[in-house]
Write a protein that binds this DNA or RNA. Structure first.
Length: 722
DNA sequence: CCAGGACACGTTTTT
DNA sequence: CGTGTCCTGG
């Protein structure tokens, strides 16, 4: 068989990874080194050269987007001939694969067949409800915190029962909430995202025969973005792999930026210990960026300790120097960026080839305003996801009720949406009855109406709601998915409800509801025995719906550094390169936090193909007060010769307000300047390193050497200049 | 039920 | 500063 198409256009290390004999592999793939290509070609090699049947291969990704891309590229490489076999090859996210397992083996997993997936919104609501049952003070223990705690435990593979008995009030409370939450999920047949993984891991441990079946089936498991795996995912993988399967882990320890949500960078570092006789390949040739950009990225990341070690190189020319612009403030920064983009577009480049990357979402507004002012189309990535929008969740709740009236979360959600006179009083009565008799809210409603135990007005309203559900079900019986959904959003009154909503908001919601119908029309069902609606709802729970509302207008791309991972742009602006913002002050406190920020910076730099522009503002308005941050240490980690400072044009004058601000600084900070040596009655001598706020809230950061750095309120600190 | 005001809060995000 | 949430009064 001619396999040259699998090896063409591969460099030596890439080819080595693709053609490796059956073994464990760790592929350390630097940014822009052709990671996906290697993964896809390796799978094709396994099938076409090594004769591995496709059904014995599993490829795991983190995002739906990555899974989709891999499927498409596999299809290209394998060709249509392999299409039939292709269906047996499992490609999916950890979550979708776990979901598939639980759907298939629901009995063994101890779940009802129609178990329902909670998104984080649903999860929070449920936790709040658990609080009510336990009479826990929401003030003292914010439900958000409990949610975070529960997910963190699950990511580590821990159940409420695993949390030790102790006297720490925090742990005692959290354990109680976690246990109550587990019980509520169990009762309602609900499963959150982390539970999908935890539960399928437990399924294997508890059902050895089942595990054996899958262990014998999957001889090759490939995992993308391995640096992002958390503890359960890694454990899950190790159990599945057993002693026989060959595991290929592809990742880049330098691009691990999700430590804060449970990703364990150690997993990639420990891989060779757990999977013996691993062949390690380093993909270090970069096909994306100029030499200048790569040199900068390498220089920055070199400041991190405990790396596996990798040095990106390129055959590309040095290219242009990196521009560095010191803006007066965030307005000036935005103005500068937009002006640069306009020049770039005037030079014949598409707007979509330029991206503005920032550390935090709050920074986007000023940039947006500047783009709007100049009439430059832009697109912001991230933010509210399609299937998480209020109007969409309401529509989905009606659809879920069609499937099962006993879905309490859905019932509760739309009981009075659109408003139909069922108030909190009635709702409370329903909930109480349901809890007492251990039945669903729907069953409770039926019972209460039967026994006439509700006041007249409430009874009429509630009866109306139940009748609505009945007629929705009856009227949609013979409809296809799209007309069914169209009918439901109409007949439920949701569409009218949002049409009557004033302002652009209502308009957008109506459009989203219509988009939902479109999505149903385009939805491809598989031949499982689930109804199209059931399949669609499961899909909606696991897929954020990124592809929705895609418009193809050529637009400048705005996003956080996190969402930029995996993307590339000819022209990249990294803005807000200031201490306390990037590295963010919440993270800069610990060495691990700082290293993750640095990796984020590395990700940002390596997004750029031809030209990189970095900006920082001397002064920035944040949450209403003015902050003075020095330039980011990351700028200083880039060799000077790679940078060129952008000089101000004579026509640009300092904003008029700046003089006033300067005076204010003088008074608020008592004439202290950066670098001023000061003495504090307790901490001793130190040096001023930062300013923040004004008036009574004016604070300075002072580095007291051995005592560390501290933020002090100028008004109270009684600092003495020395 | 809605409007309006007080109040808290503000890093990154996928599934 | 701007936004989202919670509570109160009509």
């Amino acid at each position: 068989m001619d396999v040259s198409h699998l090896l063409d256009k591969l460099n030596d290390p890439q080819r080595e990874a693709v053609c490796a004999p059956a073994c464990h592999q760790l592929i350390l793939a630097g940014a822009g080194s052709g990671k996906t290509r290697v993964l896809v070609h390796r799978i094709a090699w396994l099938i076409q050269v090594m004769g591995v049947p496709p059904h014995r291969i599993m490829a795991v990704t983190f995002t739906n987007k990555a899974a989709k891309e891999m499927r498409e590229r596999l299809q290209q490489v394998l060709g249509d001939a392999s299409m039939a076999a292709f269906r047996n090859l499992w490609v999916g996210t950890f979550h979708s694969i776990a979901h598939r397992l639980l759907k298939t083996h629901w009995q063994d997993a101890g779940l009802p067949q129609n178990f329902h997936i909670l998104d984080s919104d649903d999860q929070l609501r449920l936790i709040k409800r658990v609080y009510q049952g336990l009479t826990i003070d929401e003030e003292r223990w914010p439900p958000k915190q409990a949610q975070w705690f529960i997910n963190e435990q699950k990511d580590e593979g821990l159940r409420a029962a695993h949390i030790g008995e102790g006297h720490d009030p925090f742990l005692v409370t959290m354990k109680a909430v976690y246990a109550g939450y587990e019980e509520a999920c169990e009762r309602g047949g609900m499963v959150d995202f982390a539970e999908l993984l935890l539960r399928s891991h437990e399924l294997w441990l508890q059902k050895p025969l089942l595990l054996k079946h899958y262990q014998e089936r999957f001889s090759h498991i490939l995992v993308d973005e391995f640096q992002d795996t958390n503890a359960v995912q890694y454990a899950w993988l190790r159990v599945l792999a057993g002693n026989a399967a060959h595991v290929t882990a592809v990742g880049d320890d330098d691009q691990s930026i999700y430590g804060w949500r449970g990703a364990r960078i150690e997993n990639i570092q420990h891989f060779t210990k757990h999977f013996l006789e691993t062949q390690t390949t380093r993909l270090e040739q970069n096909y994306r960026s100029t030499k200048t950009i790569l040199d900068a990225a390498n220089a920055v990341i070199a400041n991190n300790a405990a790396r596996l070690g990798k040095h990106l190189w390129t055959e590309d020319t040095a290219g242009e120097l990196i521009d560095l612009y010191a803006a007066f403030n965030e307005q000036d920064e935005a103005r500068f960026v937009v002006e640069r983009i306009e020049n770039w577009v005037r030079g014949g480049n598409p707007r979509a080839s330029a991206a503005i990357l920032y550390r935090s979402n709050a920074q986007s507004r000023v940039l947006e305003e500047a783009l709007i002012r100049e009439g430059v189309p832009y697109r912001i990535y991230g933010g509210q996801r399609f299937y998480e929008r209020l109007e969409i969740k309401n529509a989905l709740a009606y659809l879920r009720l069609l499937q099962s009236r006993d879905n309490d979360a859905a019932f509760e959600r739309v009981l009075n949406t659109p408003t139909r006179g069922i108030g909190s009083r009635t709702e409370e009565t329903l909930r109480l009855a349901a809890r007492e008799q251990n039945i669903s809210l729907y069953q409770a409603a039926l019972g209460l109406l039967q026994h006439n135990s509700l006041p007249g007005r409430a009874a009429t309203a509630l009866r109306g709601f139940l009748q609505l559900l009945a007629s929705l079900e009856k009227d949609t019986q013979d409809m296809n998915l799209a007309s069914l959904v169209g009918h439901v959003i109409n007949a439920s009154g949701l569409l009218e409800f949002h049409q009557n909503e004033k302002g652009e908001r209502g308009q957008a919601r109506v459009e989203n509801l219509q988009e939902l119908v479109n999505a149903c029309g385009a939805f491809k069902t598989d031949d499982s025995d689930l109804s199209p609606l059931a399949q669609f709802l499961d899909n909606a729970a696991l897929d954020a719906g990124d592809a929705q509302a895609e418009d193809y207008e050529d637009a400048v791309q705005l996003m956080t550094l996190h969402s930029a991972k995996g993307l590339e742009f000819p022209l990249v602006f990294l803005v807000g390169l200031e201490e306390n913002l990037f590295p963010h002050k919440m993270s800069a406190g610990t060495p691990e936090g700082l290293e993750e920020e640095r990796r984020l910076c590395y990700v940002g730099i390596t997004r750029a193909m031809h030209k990189l522009v970095m900006c920082y503002a001397e002064t920035r308005r944040l949450y209403g007060s003015e902050v003075f941050n020095s330039q980011s240490r990351f700028i200083r980690e880039i060799p000077r010769e790679l940078l060129q400072e952008v000089r101000l044009k004579a026509s640009i004058t300092r904003p008029v307000t700046s003089k006033l601000q300067q005076q204010k600084v003088g008074s608020d900070f008592g004439n202290f300047g950066l670098g001023q040596n000061v003495r504090h009655s307790i901490f001793g001598d130190g040096v001023i390193t930062q300013f923040e706020g004004q008036g009574a809230s004016a604070r300075v950061q002072v580095n007291f050497g051995k005592q560390g750095s501290k933020w002090l309120v100028v008004q109270y600190a009684k600092l003495e200049a020395v």
